[in-house]
Design a protein around this nucleic acid. Structure first.
Length: 544
RNA sequence: GCCCCAGUAGCUCAGUGGACAGAGCGACCGCCUCCUAAGCGGUAGGCCGCAGGUUCGACUCCUGCCUGGGGCACCA
């Protein structure tokens, strides 16, 4: 149950209660949604069709009974109820209910859409290697992860954002060697880092080219410089972390060997051919995995286990890892390790992000690792700006490959969905400016439910769009699907455009309308659009 | 060979059991004495990859197949 005012949820609950009452027991929650056509009413429910098999009566007969009861329960909240098609109940809500609901959106303020107290959740995302700048692929993770966190917070969860820094291991060593080579004016090793940024970083490290340069020290300095850049870029992108967690620190503190010993004490570990193995097959993995190599070196997996043991120790009810598609093969062993560490099955969620293709007009921009071919997040932001980048990168479901058309994103005009939404916000702001602050305050305090306005169909649609906000937040949070909100923002902008076309706001009285109601509707539309955009990390300008 | 993701309008994609499948871009036609035309209205364009199955009802769930992408380390 929602903890704050949510008129639509109350309507939904009433339908569910009447259905359960008729059945005599709890039933599958019936749907209550917007029907495909206006003739089918404002809201429609499949409750009768769900109940029909249970009651052994034809759906339309059940609908008859349900409709009658619903009419009694909802009283003047409904204009009328119709039975249609295979047994849908189509609800036509009263204007009074709509106006009253609009007033309640105002009363709820920023609590409108917020959920009841939920879980304590740790979300780890991006965690790109600190051996190069943030790429466009990682930028998708950043946009997704950060929006997801914002949505989860609004939905009622307590969220912490974390970035795991892989500042240890062979890649860091190769990075150090590449830095030294560049500092000496040489080409990096065959398996080293070729990017031009390596030259710049090398130049900033004192003594990197000296004959006695220590690769580890140079690498550490390099990682530090890269990480500084990464943090600056993410900040520019609007993404803030609660914590950057160092892999190196796990090695230095002995946390990894401690984790292995703990697993060993639980009989999860065994030696084989000089190496130390974790029995991950016990928890559904395809094969057992190495923790410590024959050479004595600890594997990346071992460090990750220590990291997740640390996560477990921090009192979260749920841990979410956002990983790239190329790590999918790693999920089985991590889930197994999680359970070996005592984590409840299902309390670790791994979300796999698919890849990003860049396109410029028609051609796909190739992104190889060769120098200059990498498109960094900074390049992208220089090109299309933060708002377009965040909107486009989060617009598609995380499990589908994303094509980002730079030509479209760059277009600061009519064809660009980001600007379409921002324009709608600016337009509303302009109307409200025209009304004046005092007038807006007055309108917000007016008795909207008692207003005599018969809302235009466009205004009704707009109010119902706003009423859908809490449900959209709950769904986006539940399904870990921030992209749903880009659609919601577009629909809200579209609906407002229709209202704007059909109804004069300032000076509504001239056409027999209620200016208070229309100003209140405009302000609440603007506010929810602003809040939706904020969840996406996109600015809501007052003028364009 | 095995595992994951996808296949919906010319293009990019929404739509995780309900009514005649939607949006943006692209194409075509129209609309500024009026709170922002960065806007609005309309037209054209679909064997929802294929074949079975479950269901009162399937783009949606199940099975098989086809196509594209990603992955199957004592790398990280």
């Amino acid at each position: 149950m929602p903890s704050t005012a949510d008129p639509l949820a109350e309507l939904h609950a009433a339908v569910a209660a009447v259905a359960a009452d008729l059945r005599g027991s709890v039933v599958e929650l019936p749907d209550l949604g917007r029907p495909p056509k206006p003739e089918f009413g404002d809201y429609s429910t499949n409750a009768a069709m769900l109940l029909a098999p249970e009651l052994g009566s034809p759906p339309r007969a059940v609908a008859e009974q349900l409709g009658e009861r619903l009419g009694e329960v909802l009283g003047d909240r409904l204009e009328r109820i119709e039975i249609a098609g295979p047994g849908f109940l189509n609800l036509f809500v009263s204007d009074r209910w709509l106006r009253g609901s609009l007033a309640r959106i105002g009363e709820a303020g920023d609590l409108f859409g917020s959920g009841p107290a939920g879980e304590r959740i740790l979300v780890e995302f991006v965690s790109a290697n600190p051996t190069g700048p943030i790429t466009v692929a990682a930028a998708r993770h950043a946009a997704y992860g950060d929006s997801l966190c914002r949505i989860l917070e609004l939905a009622g969860h307590a969220v912490e954002r974390e970035y795991y820094v892989n500042d240890y291991g062979s890649q860091v060593r190769r990075f150090g060697e590449s830095l030294i080579a560049r500092a000496r004016g040489e080409e990096p090793p065959e398996d080293g880092y070729q990017g031009g940024y390596v030259v710049e970083i090398a130049a900033r490290i004192e003594g990197a080219g000296a004959p006695d340069a220590d690769p580890d020290q140079v690498a550490a300095r390099g990682v530090g410089l890269i990480l500084g850049g990464v943090r600056a870029t993410l900040e520019r992108f609007g993404v803030d972390y609660d914590r950057y967690f160092s892999e190196l620190s796990l090695h230095e503190s002995g946390a990894i060997t401690a984790a292995i010993e703990a697993l060993n004490a639980d009989q999860r570990v065994y030696p084989h051919e000089d190496a130390t193995w974790l029995r991950t097959t016990e928890f559904g993995d395809d094969k057992d995995r190495v923790l410590q190599r024959g050479s004595g070196e600890l594997t990346y997996f071992a460090a990750d286990i220590a990291y997740h043991l640390d996560k477990r120790s921090r009192d979260h009810e749920r841990v979410i890892n956002v990983w790239g598609a190329d790590h999918h093969g790693y999920i089985g062993r991590m889930q197994a390790a999680w359970q070996a560490l005592g984590g409840a099955e299902g309390s670790l969620e791994v979300i796999v992000m698919q890849l990003v293709n860049l396109r410029d007009g028609g051609a796909v921009v190739q992104m190889s690792k060769r120098a200059g071919d990498i498109v960094t997040l900074d390049d992208l932001l220089d090109d299309i700006g933060v708002d377009a980048a965040r909107f486009f990168l989060v617009q598609r479901s995380h499990d589908t490959t994303l094509d980002l058309d730079l030509a479209l994103a760059r277009e600061q005009s009519q064809d660009n969905p980001v600007y379409y939404v921002q324009y709608a916000h600016a337009r509303i702001a302009s109307i409200l400016r025209k009304a004046g602050t005092e007038r807006v305050e007055q309108a917000l305090a007016a008795d909207l439910a008692g207003s005599a306005e018969v809302p235009h169909p466009s205004a009704r649609t707009m109010i119902m769009r706003l009423l859908a906000f809490p449900g959209e937040i709950a769904l986006a949070a539940e399904r870990r699907a921030p992209h749903r909100l880009t659609t919601y923002a577009l629909e809200t902008a579209q609906d407002f455009s229709a209202f704007y076309r059909d109804c004069r706001v300032v000076g509504a009285a001239e056409e027999g309308g209620d200016e208070d109601l229309r100003i209140a509707l405009s302000e609440h539309s603007r506010r929810l659009l602003e809040r939706t955009l904020d969840l996406l990390g996109v600015a809501a300008p007052s003028e364009m």
